[in-house]
Design a protein around this nucleic acid. Sequence first.
DNA 1: CCTTCCTGTGACCACCCGGTCACATGACCG
DNA 2: CGGTCATGTGACCGGGTGGTCACAGGAAGG
Lengths: 216, 216
Amino acid sequence: MPTSTWTRLSPVRRERVLVAAMDEFGTHGYSTGSLNVIAREAGVAKGSLFQYFEGKLDLFAYVAEQTSLRVYGAMQPWLDGYDGSTEFSRYLTDALEAWLDYFARHPLERGVTAATNMELDPAVRNAVRVPVRDIYLAGLRPLVERAVETGDLRKGADIDALLSLLLVLLPHFALAAHTPGLEGPVRLAGEHPEVRRANIARLIGPVLADFVPKEP
Amino acid sequence: MPTSTWTRLSPVRRERVLVAAMDEFGTHGYSTGSLNVIAREAGVAKGSLFQYFEGKLDLFAYVAEQTSLRVYGAMQPWLDGYDGSTEFSRYLTDALEAWLDYFARHPLERGVTAATNMELDPAVRNAVRVPVRDIYLAGLRPLVERAVETGDLRKGADIDALLSLLLVLLPHFALAAHTPGLEGPVRLAGEHPEVRRANIARLIGPVLADFVPKEP
DNA sequence: CCTTCCTGTGACCACCCGGTCACATGACCG
DNA sequence: CGGTCATGTGACCGGGTGGTCACAGGAAGG
């Protein structure tokens, strides 16, 4: 948790520090990220960082939390906007396209998401990855449950299984296009938007097939 | 690539260095892993490491390659053993159970696999993750193609899509049970083997549903 | 005016890093 | 024996790390 000094800070100074930290941690990860660099890029003395946060881990946890809130906020219209008026697999393809676009256009958030997902140290992961997963779950579960209620997903569908699969696929989709070695034969960084959209459908379609109602 | 000195080394000494490096990199990852620790744990002078490898990255790449070969070798019976005599989803569930067991019983290989998958630095990923993905693909594609030939998977199934999904799910399955924040609601670290097996089927079943022949 | 409190600062600390290199050891060979 | 070569060693190097702390500046309030 940030100190009370941090909360009293001028918004511009806060933003400068936050952006510098997102950039550094997002580019180099937690352990390799440097507080010296963050302070320099933010135009702030290193000592100041320790007046705002308890230490490196505290700062990283704050950065991860703020980032996931930004991402969550950007996707909120999609989470709220599902009303069963379109087929669920069509809706999900649209949402994933927006999801990919968001990370393509927000490299800072993408970097921090990558750093959060790829952190190895269990202590750091517990401080950072576990809370983020719970934020994802809190957003996705109501959506899926609503889709089952409206009959857009099959009654009796294994909701937990679908959520588990989405929790694997969402970060993958967000990062695969920009992370060497993550992409399989079906590419998500294709030049043409139409190709990319078709490929999203190729990947998510089969996963959903067992969850949608069977055609009579 | 290791130096010629390395190849001339006594097997015991090679193994001591390899194990120490797997342990250190597997526990702390590439950038945080320490050559000092590796040398100490292997009972070898630090200078010797630089006679065996060009530097830290060369050693890590070697460790990653050897590890993926060990893993590949352990799964080879499964890759070769598929003969279409059992339903494909049943076969894959069995294979994934063996996959999970292997990593549960081989913490060194699991650690290195995690470090390989979670490395953030693009230069390191290109040296390490991309080759490993190609090894996976080279093992999986023939298997899937064979299953389509035997009719165990639907004719005209989108093989590339299935491979892409497997490339996401396999490392996830290997690591989720031991990595905080990776597991979704359907847990793979369940105490009872039967529960774990059922959960594997809950996750892989829906993914395969669209690829198997439709029941008449 | 002085005092008090909050905030900002960067030199400084102990520590660890990857990498180097001058030297020791010892096997092999003429 | 002496000479050569491959190998092993660890002190040493420059550099970067997270974190600390004595001090400076300035606003508020008496």
